[in-house]
Write a protein that binds this DNA or RNA. Structure first.
Length: 334
DNA sequence: GGCCAGGGGATTA
DNA sequence: TAATCCCATGGC
C-alpha cells in the first residue's frame, strides 16, 4: 500500500509499518485464499487488506531481486502501534514465520507424488495463527456452506454486531463481534446475517463460551489436544471437522487433519481410500503426515479446489468429480 | 429445479 | 458404530 493512500483515506488511526526481511515459502494468494481465513481481501496492487484483532491491516510481499525465493513481508497496521516489540511478535506468530516450511515440504513430498503436485501449486501457504473466538464462529458458519457465502455472512455479522473501527476509502470497517456481544443476542437478532440454522449454534455457543469469559477457549493453545478437543466438541454446532479447523488455524495444533467434502474427494480419488471411511483417512494422515497433518491438509485442499477451478478436465480425469468413483461403481451395478 | 457448499445433530437399524 | 435425514441459505 502506498504511503499516500494510507494517510489520505483512512480514519483507522496511525498505521505503522512492520517488515520481515528474507522470508521464504510465503505467497499472499496461497495464504489468504486457501480457505483458512475469511476477512482478507486482495487489493488492486496485489497486497491484501483485512481486519485483525479489531485493527485494520494491509500486507504486501516484495520478492527479492536476486530471485533466491526470499522476499520481504511488509505490514501496515495500527495493531499495537505504540509497542514495536509486541507488534513484531504478534505478526511473526500470526504468519507462522518461525516455522521452517522448506523442511516440512521436503518431508511431506518425499515418497508422495500427489503432495509434490499440491506443494507445486500452493507452496507459499502458511498456517495463520488467528483469533480463537473469530475462528470458532467462522467455522461454525462454514458448515454445509460455501466460501463466498461464508465470507458474506461474516461481513454482515461484523457490520451488524461488530465495532465500527474507522473508514477506508469511504467504507466503514468493523471488528469481529465480541463474545459478550454475541452471547446476549437472540437468534432473530442474527436473522439479517442469513446464517440459516447456524444462527442457533452461534447464539448457544456464544453463551457457553461467555460463561467463563472465554478463558478456556483462550487457553486452548496450551491445553493438551485431547482436552481441548473435548471442550470444542461440547459446543453446539462444533463437530470433528470444525473443531479441527479451530485447533489448526488458531491454536497451533498442526497435526490435526480436518476432513470436509473436498478432502474426502482427495483421499478417495488420489489416495485410493473409501470415501466414507473417515477414521481410515485419519489413520492414513497420522501415519503419513504425522505432526504436519494440518499443513498437508491445506496443501491438498488448496490443490484440488484450484484444480477444479483452473483445470476441470484434469480434475475430472483424476476422478475427483463427485459423486465419488465408489458411488459411481455402485450406481453402475444398480 | 435439483444439486452443491470447508457439517452437525438426532434418530434409526 | 454406521447409515440416514433434516437443518436455512444462495449460486448455478
Amino acid at each position: 500500500m502506498e504511503n499516500g493512500a494510507v494517510s489520505e483515506s483512512n480514519m483507522t488511526g496511525t498505521l505503522v509499518k512492520t517488515v520481515f526481511k528474507n522470508v521464504m515459502d510465503f505467497d499472499l494468494e496461497d495464504i489468504f485464499e486457501c480457505g483458512q481465513c475469511f476477512r482478507w481481501r486482495r487489493q488492486p496492487d496485489g497486497s491484501y487488506s483485512g481486519i485483525v484483532e479489531g485493527s485494520f491491516a494491509n500486507v504486501s510481499y516484495i520478492a527479492g531481486e536476486d530471485s533466491d525465493g526470499t522476499g520481504d513481508v511488509k505490514i501496515w497496521s495500527n495493531l499495537f502501534a505504540s509497542d514495536r516489540e509486541r507488534r513484531d511478535r504478534y505478526w511473526r506468530n500470526y504468519f507462522d514465520l518461525d516455522r521452517n516450511y522448506t523442511r516440512i515440504k521436503r518431508i511431506l513430498t518425499t515418497e508422495d507424488s500427489v503432495m509434490r503436485k499440491a506443494v507445486r501449486t500452493g507452496g507459499g501457504i502458511r498456517i495463520l495463527n488467528q483469533n480463537k473466538w473469530e475462528t470458532l464462529i467462522s467455522f461454525i458458519i462454514s458448515q454445509n456452506n460455501n466460501i463466498p457465502r461464508i465470507q458474506g455472512c461474516i461481513e454482515i455479522l461484523c457490520r451488524e454486531h461488530g465495532r465500527n473501527i474507522g473508514l477506508l476509502h469511504g467504507e466503514p470497517l468493523y471488528s469481529f463481534p465480541s463474545v459478550d456481544r454475541l452471547s446476549v443476542l437472540n437468534e432473530d437478532d442474527l436473522d439479517v446475517c442469513r446464517l440459516g440454522y447456524r444462527a442457533r449454534y452461534i447464539s448457544q455457543a456464544a453463551r457457553i463460551v461467555a460463561m467463563d469469559g472465554g478463558m478456556v477457549l483462550e487457553d486452548g493453545e496450551s491445553m493438551p489436544k485431547a482436552a481441548l478437543e473435548e471442550y470444542l466438541l461440547s459446543l453446539p454446532g462444533v463437530g470433528p471437522k470444525v473443531a479441527n479447523c479451530v485447533m489448526l488455524f488458531s491454536m497451533k495444533k498442526a497435526e490435526v487433519f480436518p476432513i470436509d467434502v473436498w478432502m474426502r474427494r482427495v483421499m478417495a480419488g488420489l489416495y485410493g481410500m473409501s470415501e466414507r471411511n473417515l477414521s481410515g483417512m485419519q489413520d492414513y494422515a497420522k501415519r503419513n503426515f504425522g505432526e504436519y497433518g494440518g499443513i498437508a491438509q491445506q496443501y491438498l485442499f488448496n490443490y484440488v479446489r484450484k484444480l477444479k477451478r483452473d483445470d476441470p478436465t484434469t480434475y475430472a480425469r483424476l476422478g475427483l468429480d463427485s459423486p465419488s468413483m465408489e458411488d459411481r461403481d455402485e450406481k453402475r451395478m444398480i
